[in-house]
Simulated scan of single mutants.
Amino acid sequence: MSDFLTTFTTDLKDNLAGFIGVSVTEIKTGMSFASLSVDPNFDPELASAYNLEVVKAKFNALKALGLDQKIDDILITLSNQIHIIDLSDNGEYFVYLAVDSSKVNLGMARATLKKYSKDIAGKL
């Protein structure tokens, strides 16, 4: 893993209350470039593989609807977790983040993720 990705995943873990896991995945290939989890039962790479299908479905939906829009992020709210799929500015990568919803608010999670992920496309 590159130093940038090691720093990226560690910074999220250290600076986001309720952090569960994160991964960085290339959309074209489905390859995960980095992942980190504080829960041994939570595999962010596996979650990213399934969430890649969510991203592709959303791209297909935009195309079918004739919407010329860029996806910033996709939010999935579970009973006790928040999952955010944040797409890079160039649309080639996504960051998948899972947090404990009882320990963080959505606005803080999104802002922190944006802060740390803004350089992903330029660094990979």
Rank of each mutant, 00 (worst) to 15 (best):
N80R: 13
D68N: 14
D100C: 05
G18L: 09
F19A: 02
T77W: 12
F33I: 06
F8D: 00
S48Y: 01
D89C: 03
L52D: 01
G66M: 07
Q69L: 11
E45L: 14
M108N: 15
I71C: 03
F8Y: 15
F19K: 02
N51M: 05
K103D: 06
A47D: 12
T9F: 04
S79N: 15
I74D: 01
M1A: 10
N80I: 10
N80F: 14
I82Y: 10
L67W: 13
E26C: 09
D11H: 08
S117A: 13
D86R: 09
D39R: 04
S88I: 03
A61F: 10
S32G: 13
E45G: 07
I76Q: 10
K70A: 15
D73Y: 09
L78Y: 09
D89N: 04
K123P: 01
L113M: 05
L97R: 00
E53A: 10
T10A: 11
L124R: 02
K13N: 12
F4K: 12
G18W: 11
L75Q: 12
L97S: 00
T112W: 03
N80G: 12
D11W: 08
D43M: 12
D11T: 15
K115G: 03
A49N: 07
P44L: 07
I71D: 02
S79F: 05
K123M: 14
K63R: 12
K118L: 02
